[in-house]
Design a protein around this nucleic acid. Structure first.
Length: 587
RNA sequence: GGGGCUGUAGCUCAGCUGGUUAGAGUGCCGGACUGUCACUCCGGAGGUCGCGGGUUCGAGCCCCGUCAGCCCCGCCA
């Protein structure tokens, strides 16, 4: 890090440097002028360093500079590293055992008073996020954000070395590409040279990476920027980064083994040892036990089916639902019997938000079961259930499509209660055998659960035409503590199967050729069996940095209204620019 | 597209039932101070109460609209 202007990074100096003459450059974090004696905390990306300016040691010019230093000014300081007296050490600083005794100093980057503070005292709040985004360069100076971006860098480097070590080639694919009518809304880029025609920014390099397999590049990966013009969330940005990979002559297990290797390496980079292989759950099992396709396996509280226990003493709305093909399912919350009325109402609230009609609850006391659940599902069912004193039973009645999401919501709230044991801190799993199709909620049409290039499960080809909803896919998700980290599949390489899928999706041959012709031609040109995966890199960086939002691991993120406050994008353009692109703006 | 929360000094916030001149901490400016590390002490400046409209004798406060930020639903193959 030594350059013509400096010999060390501020934050890198230690006791071993005592006695050395050094020159550092940094930003004034905070200055304390005691009158005649001035202390300046100088900051760079390596950390903070206390610089002392004392008469007799520092030149009069340096003292004059030190007395006028405002926050965030960039200054070059030369002096001697000295040990601090034992009582003068600062254990909160990495450099706290030493200080730089300045001899000379020069302001090289004067700074106006910062609009938002970079240095914060203990207990001082952050500025509003709107201001932090607007004055992003100041916010990015904060040690917390610097640590996040440094972590992100390390994760990227570790990804590249791991993938390269596994024989994967990093190959870039186009950013200006072809619109895809499937999936998310495309960002369109008008073509100046071809009037009325548009490029699209890639939602992912999906088709390109499959074509790279066809082209014989066996094992591909890319740190790929992807673009989707959809509404944002705390964990969703318009542009985001995927660790994208694809390999030939592989099974789902092969792909999963590669992904596990990356994830183990990335968690190791962040200082966490995690065991591999990860447990595997089928999609059906995940929905049955956890009510969701991304279960949080840190906790128990699995969903149980109470339907079989329902007797003649159950309330009519329960017995009717069961005889009508629905089920009674619930979870037991240890120590939940202590829950207040308010907490029970909160559980009911999340269940109703998830479209459940209501929530049945019963507390198991020494005396037996109590609560409205006794009437609802009946004493017979509760007696059969047994249960330990102190438990709280929370149950929902109805079709699985209702009870699963409701119980997932209830369980997610329940595990936040004090006293719920966490079985492990880093709970990875694979969810496999997703359904190939989902029903579109509006049209009732079959739509791909993943994307239309996902191969059906080898055992389920017979259902493809007869009962598509029953057909499983060779599609798998990597899940961590209830977060989906990524998704992948074995792809279709048989043009006949691909044609059949398109037909089931209602895409006629002419349309197929127009939209996906270059992929279909590729499959016909000698395609090796292949499959792959894509990991949401920003989300991984967020989780490993312990950040609450993706915005804290992206240098220049967008707001939830899809604006870049710092640079001021998007923005109107000159009429002439529109004209060159053959565009007019209408209301 | 829909719902919720927030918007008062550079920053973080308080502001009662609608009532006189809108406050605090911090930062900033000036002064004092030779071992501080959120230095301390003294003094000072600093306000389009997001914006527009309405109700009222009177609006930071009530009503309508709008903008921005955040969270959520829809959406995200």
């Amino acid at each position: 890090m030594a350059t013509a202007l400096r010999t060390h990074l501020c934050g890198s100096l230690r006791e071993a440097h005592v006695g050395e003459r050094v020159r550092v450059g940094g930003w004034v974090h905070r200055a304390r002028n005691l009158g005649g004696l001035v202390f300046v905390d100088l900051r760079d990306r390596a950390g903070l360093l206390q610089v002392s300016f004392a008469p007799g040691t520092a030149t009069p010019e340096a003292l004059a500079v030190a007395e006028r230093l405002g926050p965030e000014t960039v200054v070059l300081v030369e002096g001697e590293v000295v040990a601090r007296p034992p009582e003068g050490r600062n254990p909160e600083l990495e450099t706290g055992a030493i200080e730089l005794r300045a001899v000379s100093a020069r302001v090289v980057g004067p700074a106006v008073t910062p609009a938002i503070p970079v240095a914060r005292g203990k207990g001082e709040k952050l500025a509003a996020e709107e201001l932090r985004l607007k004055h992003r360069i100041l916010d990015l100076r904060r040690p917390e954000l610097q640590a996040n971006l440094i972590m992100r860098h390390r994760l990227l480097q570790r990804t590249r070395s791991t993938m390269s070590g596994l024989g994967f080639l990093e190959i870039e694919t186009p950013i200006l590409t072809k619109p895809t009518p499937e999936g998310a809304r495309d960002f369109l880029v008008p073509s100046r040279m071809h009037k009325g025609e548009f490029f699209a920014l890639p939602q992912s390099p999906q088709i390109y990476k499959q074509l790279l397999m066809v082209a014989g590049y066996d094992r591909y990966f890319q740190v790929a920027r992807c673009f989707r013009d959809e509404d944002l969330r705390a964990d969703r940005q318009l542009e985001f980064t995927q660790i994208d990979l694809e390999a030939s002559f592989v099974s789902a297990d092969d792909v999963q083994a590669v992904v596990e290797t990356i994830l183990v390496a990335l968690w190791d980079e962040a200082g966490h040892a995690i065991p591999s292989p990860f447990p595997r759950l089928t999609w059906r099992e995940a929905m049955e036990r956890f009510g969701v396709d991304k279960p949080d396996l840190r906790y128990g509280l699995e969903i149980e089916d109470l339907s079989a226990y329902i007797g003649s003493d159950a309330a009519p709305f329960v017995s009717d639902a069961v005889s009508g093909g629905g089920r009674v399912r619930g979870i037991r919350v240890p120590l939940g019997a202590e829950a207040s009325r308010k907490e029970i109402d909160a559980f009911t609230g999340v269940a109703k938000d998830a479209k459940a009609g209501g929530l049945i609850w019963a507390k198991r006391t020494e005396a037996g079961w109590e609560g409205q659940g006794v009437k609802a599902i009946g004493a017979t069912a509760l007696a059969a259930l047994g249960g330990a004193p102190g438990e709280l039973l929370l149950a929902v009645v109805g079709a699985d499509a209702v009870t699963s999401p409701a119980l997932h919501a209830v369980r997610s709230l329940a595990v936040k209660r004090p006293g719920i044991p966490q079985r492990l801190a880093h709970a990875f799993c694979w969810v496999v055998d997703f359904p190939l199709f989902e029903r579109d909620t509006e049209s009732g049409q079959h739509v791909p659960a993943h994307h239309p290039f996902t191969s059906p499960h080898a055992d389920d080809f017979e259902f493809l035409e007869r009962d598509p909803g029953r057909c499983r896919a060779q599609h798998y998700d990597a899940v961590y503590n209830g977060n989906e980290l990524g998704s992948g599949s074995i792809r279709i390489t048989d043009p006949a199967v691909q044609g059949l899928i398109f037909r089931l999706l209602g895409i006629d041959p002419e349309d197929q050729q127009r939209r996906f012709g270059f992929l279909l031609d590729g499959l016909a040109a000698g395609a090796p069996p292949h499959g792959g995966f894509a990991l949401g890199f920003d989300r991984i960086a967020m989780l490993l940095a312990g950040a609450p939002s993706l915005r804290d691991v992206i240098a220049f993120p967008k707001t939830t209204a899809a604006r870049a406050l710092f640079e001021g994008a998007p923005t109107p353009v000159k009429a002439g620019d529109l004209q060159a692109l053959h565009l007019t703006i209408t209301d």
